[in-house]
Write a protein that binds this DNA or RNA. Structure first.
Lengths: 344, 344
DNA sequence: ACCCGGGACTAGAACGTTCTAGCGCCCGTG
DNA sequence: CACGGGCGCTAGAACGTTCTAGTCCCGGGT
């Protein structure tokens, strides 16, 4: 008969096992485990020791089940988007200090947003953080009726009640790109857009108004693009074929811009000698020394922080701020090697 | 007094609410909700109707808590790896039909593997699927003592008891690349390796033995590389500087190969005219028309299926197969535009 | 001497589900 | 007519945790 009971065979140890081993009640072990006050120093030590010995690990699910607070934020993200990957990392980092956990749910070609969100709801998340959601506004409204929802990088026009928005000022970003190019002497600047992607409409608009503002309205030219390298490549290929070439391209994002660069290189079009290229996002891609892409940076870290902040605020507030708030953060042009003065 | 009780205010509806509304017992509603048999057709209909009306949604956590089976597979993946993204998608697809759910946990610069795994364990996963884990073997063994563990794409030498491995035959893949190049007339073939990345050692070895096999042992040349575009770019840059150039490069993976291509393009080295390039993974990147990279394809779909299969097998078996099994699947060379006959 | 406050600890009820019994009922069989 | 057996359904106990409402004891103020 050992003085201290051993761990149960083949099952994960529970609070009760720790309690038995330490010779105290289950409730006290619970107190110790979550660091609440109400336990003496000596006992606390003894309990922790016992827990360590039998390899106790709290059951997140049981814990959540009991406390009506789950302290869980559901994050939906696109598996194939490097930009989302950066955001997710930021969200992890921001959630931890706020005392929240993250449940990830991926969207992929074979797994739609509906599916992704359903799974998060089933996990009893307290709020939803949707990265670049494509779902129609009514669907978002429906979700917002159930729990706080934050849309990141997707603007909602008109605002959907109950859905907070955190995004970069996409139009402003496009404007900065155009301004930069104009200041370098460019006048024939085309935009390869992102189609229906979140943010695409704003960037398009920003490009147009900036062109007008510089009196280049008649030189405005938007090519249908998309968010992959392939889209950028296709668009710029069409550009090289016909008549007079522009001297600069503002691409929807960095991936798109990379496709543009690649085609230009193959066609022996010097960058930035003959053509300047600007991307968007300032992703890892853009920073690579051999690409060295001039791009419009989004402050991913801050975007993530704000998204978590909004969500937590909503969860902890008494639902007072019912109408959707929009937070817009400023983009910042990062000049690298793919833009330069126009050749005489 | 309404004939049917309404949903409770401000709380998510539970089984009890549905039961009250449909006028049946909680247990019966449970039966209906999980599609078990034991309910009459009429009642079933009535219960479903009631559930729909008040917007009932099962609580995954309570469900898991009660049934000792959680039917949950924990997946650890690298946020920044496109290859992992593909794998995750495959895992989702494979888990669904097997009746399992997926809990994702990301590894990022700011969030180590330890952290990622801890969180999965807290979720009471039944098995762990680790994509390209970097953790030391003893750590894996420790985990395997607690639950089934499958390592994907990382070979374990020597085998770790209790850890199943699912991977592509990396050495064979490298061999195929070399064979292909040799058959095109190449003799000076260098390898840009992946350093300590999972699979790198095998690819390196495969390259070496293939070179030897063709009697090119004295021309063997391995350059330190890595798994990003930047690594490939740096390696090939060093290559262009000094003495005699090789005529072909086998890169560690597609990202690395892309970096190589980019530098070559800029240096006006014709591909495949002056130099051929082979990648590894057959990722989206390689398939892009403007890159059109010859590469060694990994069957991601199958890799994912097998990983899930192994995990499920272990979970459902009575732990009979205690020793770690290794499943190796064959790679397959995909010839595209970056390889060609040697210039006379 | 008495009460009162508070710290350390405990018993037992939740949380929302599934599981194990077991209850009536109707039907077919002997 | 009794008996067994399936079907439709229900009551109540789990699961592992947290929360509520104590109990007990000790020290200090009246």
């Amino acid at each position: 008969m050992p003085p201290t009971p051993g761990p149960p065979e083949g099952k994960r140890p529970t609070l009760a096992d720790v309690a038995a081993r330490a010779g105290v009640s289950v409730a006290l072990v619970s107190i110790v485990m979550r660091g609440a006050k109400g336990a003496g120093a000596g006992t606390r030590e003894r309990v922790l020791e016992a827990a360590r010995e039998i390899g106790y690990r709290p059951d997140a699910r049981a814990r959540l089940l009991r406390s009506n607070r789950s302290r869980l934020l559901g994050v939906q993200f696109g598996l194939q988007h490097p930009f989302h990957a950066d955001l997710v990392e930021g969200v992890y980092a921001a959630a931890e200090p706020a005392g929240y956990q993250i449940a990830l749910s991926a969207v992929a070609p074979s797994r739609g947003e509906r599916h992704a969100v359903e799974s998060l709801l089933g996990d009893r998340c307290e709020a939803l953080i949707l990265l670049g959601p494509q779902a129609p506004a009514p669907r978002l409204a429906e979700l917002a009726a159930q729990l706080p929802v934050v849309s990141v990088a997707r603007r909602l026009r008109p605002a959907v009640p109950g859905v907070d928005v955190v995004r970069t000022a996409d139009d402003e970003g496009a404007r900065q790109a155009v301004d930069h190019l104009v200041s370098l002497g460019h006048r024939d600047i085309v935009h390869i857009d992102g189609g229906r992607a979140p943010g695409a409409a704003d960037r398009r608009r920003g490009y147009r108004t900036a062109m007008n503002h510089h009196g280049l309205g008649d030189r405005t030219r938007v090519l249908p693009g998309g968010l992959t390298e392939e889209d950028g490549a296709a668009a710029v290929r069409s550009l090289l074929g016909d008549g007079p070439r522009p001297t600069a391209v503002v691409a929807f994002n960095d991936r798109c811009a990379t496709g543009v660069l690649d085609v230009l290189l193959r066609a022996r079009v010097a960058v930035p000698g003959e053509m300047s290229v600007v991307g968007f996002d300032d992703s890892h891609l853009a920073r690579l020394a051999h690409i060295s892409l001039t791009t419009v940076g989004q402050d991913v870290r801050r975007l993530a922080e704000l998204a978590v902040g909004r969500a937590v605020e909503r969860v902890e507030g008494d639902g007072a701020a019912a109408s959707g708030k929009e937070t817009v953060i400023a983009p910042r042009l990062v000049v690298r090697g793919t833009t330069g003065g126009i050749q005489p």
